[in-house]
Amino acid sequence: MQGQVDRGIALYEKALQISRQIHDTEGQGYSLMMLGEIVAIKRSFSVGMGYLHEAINIFQKLNSPHTKKVQAIIDYLLSTRL
């Protein structure tokens, strides 16, 4: 299972890198959202939350409906930390 998590993280990191290279802002936000959720749960809560906050900032600037999804992920992760 851990190997699949590591592979997923590596793929989203690559997707983020490519999105940044081609200036795909929505792609960056999506990659950060997915990275944030996986990393917060499986590796480092604080690093994952950093990705999620970066994603929500991008989606807010784009006025994207993904903003609500990222906020829901953040709220869920915070509620499970109590």
Results as ranks from 00 to 15, higher is better:
M1K: 11
Q2H: 01
Q2Y: 12
G3V: 06
Q4G: 04
V5E: 02
D6W: 02
D6F: 08
R7V: 04
G8D: 04
G8E: 09
I9L: 15
A10M: 12
L11G: 04
L11S: 10
Y12E: 07
Y12S: 01
Y12F: 15
E13L: 10
E13F: 06
K14T: 11
K14H: 08
K14V: 07
A15K: 04
L16M: 11
L16Y: 06
L16P: 00
Q17Y: 08
Q17S: 15
I18N: 09
I18T: 13
I18K: 06
S19A: 15
S19L: 02
S19R: 05
R20Y: 04
R20A: 15
Q21F: 06
Q21D: 15
H23P: 00
D24M: 00
D24W: 09
T25W: 11
T25C: 03
T25V: 15
T25Y: 08
T25P: 08
E26R: 14
G27T: 12
G27N: 02
Q28T: 11
Q28W: 14
G29Y: 09
G29D: 05
Y30D: 04
S31L: 07
L32W: 02
M33P: 00
M33T: 09
M34R: 12
L35C: 03
L35F: 07
G36W: 06
E37Y: 11
E37C: 09
E37S: 02
I38K: 05
V39P: 05
V39C: 01
A40N: 05
I41S: 02
R43N: 09
S44M: 02
F45I: 00
S46Q: 15
S46K: 11
S46R: 11
S46N: 15
V47F: 00
V47L: 12
V47H: 12
M49N: 04
M49Q: 15
G50W: 06
G50H: 06
G50Q: 14
G50M: 11
G50S: 14
Y51R: 07
L52V: 09
L52A: 07
L52T: 10
H53E: 14
H53V: 06
E54A: 14
I56R: 02
I56N: 03
I56W: 02
N57I: 06
N57E: 14
I58Y: 09
I58G: 08
I58K: 09
Q60N: 11
K61I: 02
L62T: 06
N63D: 11
N63R: 14
N63K: 15
N63A: 03
S64C: 03
S64L: 01
H66L: 10
H66G: 00
H66E: 03
T67K: 12
T67G: 00
K68M: 05
K68F: 03
K68Y: 08
K69G: 01
K69M: 14
K69E: 05
K69T: 13
V70Q: 10
Q71R: 10
Q71T: 02
Q71G: 04
A72N: 04
A72L: 01
A72C: 00
I73Y: 01
I73E: 00
I73C: 01
I74S: 05
I74F: 06
I74Q: 10
I74A: 03
Y76R: 15
Y76L: 12
L77W: 00
L77A: 03
L77Y: 07
L78G: 13
L78W: 06
T80G: 03
T80P: 01
R81E: 12
R81N: 13
R81M: 14
L82N: 03
L82M: 12
